[in-house]
Computed example of a mutant assay.
Amino acid sequence: MPESTARRPRRHGGAITDVAGIEVGHFTDARRPTGCSVVLTRAGAVAGVDVRGAAPGTRETDLLAPENLVDRVHAITLAGGSAWGLDAASGVMRWLEERGVGFDVRVGRLPIVPAAVLFDILVGDAAIRPDAAAGYAACEAASTRRPAEGNVGAGAGAAVGKIFGIDRAMKGGIGTASVTVDGVTVGALIACNALGDVVDPDTAQVIAGARTPNGNKLFDTRRALLRGVAPKPLLAGTNTTIGVIATDAVITKVQARKLAQMAHDGLARSINPVHTMSDGDTLFSLGTGASGKTLGMMTLGTLFAEATARAVVNAVRAAQGLRIGALHLPSAADLAAAR
């Protein structure tokens, strides 16, 4: 299924697991390209969320509003499978409950596990999607090691650049990166299944996305739309970039919400167009407080956006090309090698 690829450009360094208190695990379904990824914070972490896409698939996001009661979560689940994939979070809850992790409700421990999903069911058999067993398996695989990137977990069936049809799209994936300033680390894990193109913010060059009609080159969606090229009719919600940005800084729940908002600046720098009517772009923020420090919101917000943009770029640079049936999704490395 994955094609051999040429030498890849150097990816950004670091990982979300550089943040103390964070573990990551993937489950990738062997039957078709789909899966789920879990970010565990067993000791609990202050959390926030910001949903910018118009077609989200989410679970337990209302409780993250600053005015609501619960101020800590124990995991975040990212999954393929569209709304069906939200079932993966049930398996994460079961895994945590078995280990005594959760919010004390006197009669037991209730794990708080928000989740978001992306639409990957055009790739292979749509009846196969992440379920509770997949979420449980992702937890079993979790560790503090650098997570695998590309065609794994929630990024297994991801594609980017579908605005002119999936037959002209490219392979998306999942990526991670981190940034450290003055003893405070911010790391991101992003599953990129965007409608738009992925752009390297450092060079402003499109690196993956919609291809020309012959499929051999990048089309550059932004410039094509500005020329008046019409997109294909789109089914709402058939895309979406989702992710988690974590820090070991000490933050409040109000700050967590604001940092999730600022992290979307990283999506805007690395995906174009972004936050569309056919995307459910959702980013979660986590603060473990393990460093005992804070940098102030100006610097933290900058780091959240930077880690997000770098993780998006890593997601498509780590991806491998995919052939499944008549569908061909080349990777960024495939197109670069063909030039």
Rank of each mutant, 00 (worst) to 15 (best):
E3Q: 12
A6E: 15
P9W: 15
A15V: 11
I22N: 08
V24G: 01
T28F: 00
T28D: 14
A30K: 13
T34W: 03
A45F: 01
G48F: 00
A55F: 07
E60M: 13
T61I: 08
T61D: 10
E67P: 04
D71Y: 02
R72A: 12
R72S: 05
H74F: 15
A75G: 03
G81S: 05
W84P: 08
G91N: 00
W95R: 02
E97H: 11
R99Y: 10
V105H: 10
V113G: 04
V113D: 00
F119V: 09
D120N: 14
L122S: 01
L122D: 12
G124M: 05
D125N: 10
D131C: 11
A134H: 11
Y136V: 04
Y136D: 04
A138K: 09
R145E: 13
R145A: 13
R146C: 06
E149S: 12
A156N: 03
A156M: 01
G157P: 01
G157Y: 07
G157V: 15
G161S: 15
F164M: 15
R168D: 14
I174V: 15
A177D: 06
G183F: 14
G183V: 14
V186M: 00
A188M: 06
A188Y: 05
A188W: 00
C192V: 13
L195F: 01
D197L: 10
V198G: 08
V206Q: 01
T221M: 08
R223M: 12
L226H: 05
R227T: 01
P231D: 07
A236Y: 14
A236T: 13
G243Y: 06
G243L: 03
I251H: 00
A256M: 09
G266L: 10
L267E: 06
S278D: 09
D279W: 03
D281G: 07
L283Q: 11
G292H: 12
L300G: 00
A307W: 03
R310F: 06
A315D: 04
A318E: 08
Q320W: 07
A326Y: 15
L327T: 07
L327H: 08
H328N: 09
D334H: 02
